[in-house]
Design a protein around this nucleic acid. Structure first.
Length: 560
RNA sequence: GUCCCAGUAGCUCAGCUGGAUAGAGCAACAGCCUUCUAAGCUGUGGGUCGGGAGUUCGAAUCUCUCCUGGGACGCCA
């Protein structure tokens, strides 16, 4: 609001040479509050107007007049503006009381659909920390897309196919123990899978045996199919436990194998477009013009490969959903793969290929290196979540043993800490796995945010707050800082989706909670004057914080 | 070898479409609970923004180059 007014006034004063949008883009919020609420740097105007920025600021400042502006001052080359706190406070809180949980929502995406590919664990393998990243980032992005107005479709594309399962079948035939697997499916299957790779170093025949079993699987061999289905079933049951803990649901869970009988059509299509070439006995699509290595479509033994399946799946998804965007939330080590997929789709003449995007993220590292299931290095998410919940539980016993719903709160806090730890930093960064960092409950963490929310709720309850848009509003220095933070929420949600970056929300919420806690410490809300006004502000804060946390997929307990 | 990503406080990270004195959290040290939940708040110390060069009135931010780390580079996904 105030930025638009400023941009409009400046553009009117300066004339057509500087348009509103350009000015709007360059309006800043001063780093230090004492300098003002808004600032415009005049350095950019200097070359065209041939005047020093200091002079421009002095000339322009007195000309800026509006009810929203309390005070306009030239400082150095800047025009610093102090806003009318009373007016903006009233406006903001009334807006929140009216819009409630719709505050901060957008309509840009209305009538459009976004398809998300997220989580995608591999069956017969434990749910690793790496899959956690895809799951929570993808889930948060889907929440943000919905907040943006989009229809969202969350697809969990289970890794249930490929040569690796040939290897697993081979491993099972050699060392499998049905009883043990029934008792502890993922751990036992992983054990024989790791053993397979260890043995294969000595015995290269095993690799051929693995390929052979995969071929049998492709040819619908009865035994291979039976075992594969069994592995899949027990794996999905294990995954479901984790999704329940995380509080995540999917619109569609579908394995790669679903596309087995649909890939021939894709291969045919590639042939029709004369894109398929032979190379060392395999079939590839050359991408020389794009400057990247060729995309492998069929292996020399005639079996398919993941690119073939991803192409088929992408085409199928477009046919099913006519998506406006398809986002693949997959680790950055697959960048080349998705670049290839996108280019091949493009060569096939699908103009929607430009809307297929790889939302990549950094890896979970251990000792600075990639974690690998094959070497048995994986850390199990389930154990980490259990540990997190346990520590949250210990914390409750120590700090608030009278608490009701202890188990629920322990889950919300523990799981929240794990999710937030992953979302708070830029998704592109690699992260070194550290259980200590992950389970920290103080400082820049989810428990800190949840605790701030709980404090607000406690006050609202004790103060008997009721939503009433006719409440009076107040403005003092600390309250004004909080109002300004609350007002940044809509912009933060918009930016977070535009950049596909949940960490924008996470950082915003930390700033917001920090400001609230300062207000809380310095102002006695349930004492003194203007209690209704103060309570309204607290309510506005708690509403925004809860909305923000839910965008990240984190629950906000009422007490803790 | 080619391509991609990163290097900011002891540690984990913000800031990167160029702007005012480079910010948080953790750790360290010093304070604040007779009153709204101390999972909190306040303060102190801590920086050649990997090195060098360039563009600019102005560079952590843009360009080039070098160093270091990570990743990818057809028959795994």
């Amino acid at each position: 609001m105030e930025k638009h007014v400023l941009a409009l006034q400046l553009s009117q004063i300066l004339g057509e040479e500087f348009n509103r949008d350009w000015i709007y883009e360059h309006i800043e919020i001063p780093k230090q509050e004492k300098m003002g609420d808004l600032a415009f740097p005049c350095f950019k105007l200097s070359p065209a107007l041939r005047k020093p920025p200091q002079d421009l600021a002095s000339e322009l400042a007195p000309q800026l007049k509006h009810d929203l502006f309390e005070n306009v001052q030239p400082v150095g080359g800047y025009i610093n503006i102090f806003l009318n706190q009373q007016f903006i406070t009233e406006h903001t809180l009334k807006q929140i009381l009216t819009e409630q949980e719709n505050y901060g929502k957008h309509t840009f995406g209305e009538g459009k659909t976004v398809v998300f590919d997220l989580s995608a664990p591999n069956i017969a393998k434990p749910f690793s920390m790496g899959h956690l990243r895809s799951t929570v980032i993808g889930n948060s992005l889907a929440n943000l897309a919905a907040n943006y107005g989009y229809e969202t479709v969350k697809i969990n594309y289970i890794g249930d196919y490929g040569t690796q399962f040939g290897k697993l079948l081979s491993a099972y035939k050699n060392w499998g123990d049905e009883e043990k697997i029934r008792a502890n499916p993922l751990a036992e299957l992983t054990k024989i899978y790791v053993k397979f790779h260890e043995e294969a170093k000595e015995n290269t025949l095993l690799i051929d045996e693995g390929r052979h079993w995969f071929k049998k699987l492709e040819q619908q061999d009865e035994e291979a199919l039976r075992l594969w289905r069994w592995f899949k079933e027990v794996s999905l049951e294990e995954f479901e436990k984790i999704y329940q803990l995380l509080g995540i649901e999917f619109d569609l869970t579908r394995g790669e194998a679903y596309y087995n009988d649909k890939m021939d059509a894709t291969v045919e299509l590639l042939k029709e477009h004369q894109l398929l070439e032979d190379s060392d006995g395999a079939k590839v699509v050359r991408l020389d013009e794009e400057g990247i290595p060729p995309c492998l479509i069929k292996k020399s033994d005639g079996t398919t490969i993941y690119a073939t399946r991803d192409l088929t799946a992408a085409i199928d998804r477009f046919n099913s959903y006519s998506f406006d965007e398809a986002l693949y939330v997959v680790g950055h080590e697959q960048s080349l793969h998705f670049a290839q997929i996108k280019h091949v789709l493009n060569k096939l003449g699908f103009n929607w290929a430009q809307n297929v995007k790889h939302i990549s993220f950094g890896m979970m590292l251990q000792d600075g290196k990639k974690m690998s299931t094959r070497q048995g290095k994986t850390i199990l998410l389930e154990n980490v979540l259990k540990e997190a919940i346990q520590q949250a539980s210990d914390s409750i016993e120590e700090k608030n043993p009278q608490l009701r719903n202890k188990e629920t709160v322990a889950r919300q806090v523990g799981v929240g800490a794990v999710i937030f730890h992953d979302l708070k930093q830029d998704r592109r960064n690699d992260v070194e796995f550290s259980i200590e960092d992950m389970l920290r409950f103080e400082g820049n963490t989810a428990p800190y945010l949840q605790y701030s929310y709980v404090r607000a709720q406690s006050i609202l309850q004790k103060g008997g707050f009721k939503v009433d848009a006719s409440n009076p509003f107040l403005s003092d220095e600390k309250a004004w800082s909080l109002i300004k933070q609350i007002r940044k929420f809509p912009e933060a949600t918009a930016k977070a989706y535009k950049e596909y970056d949940p960490s924008q929300i996470a950082k915003y919420l930390l700033d917001l909670a920090k400001t609230f806690n300062q207000y809380y410490t310095h102002t006695k809300i349930l004492q003194g004057e203007q209690q209704d006004a103060k309570l309204t502000l607290v309510y506005g804060f708690s509403l925004v914080l809860k909305q923000g946390l839910s965008l990240l997929g984190i629950e906000a307990p009422e007490e803790m």
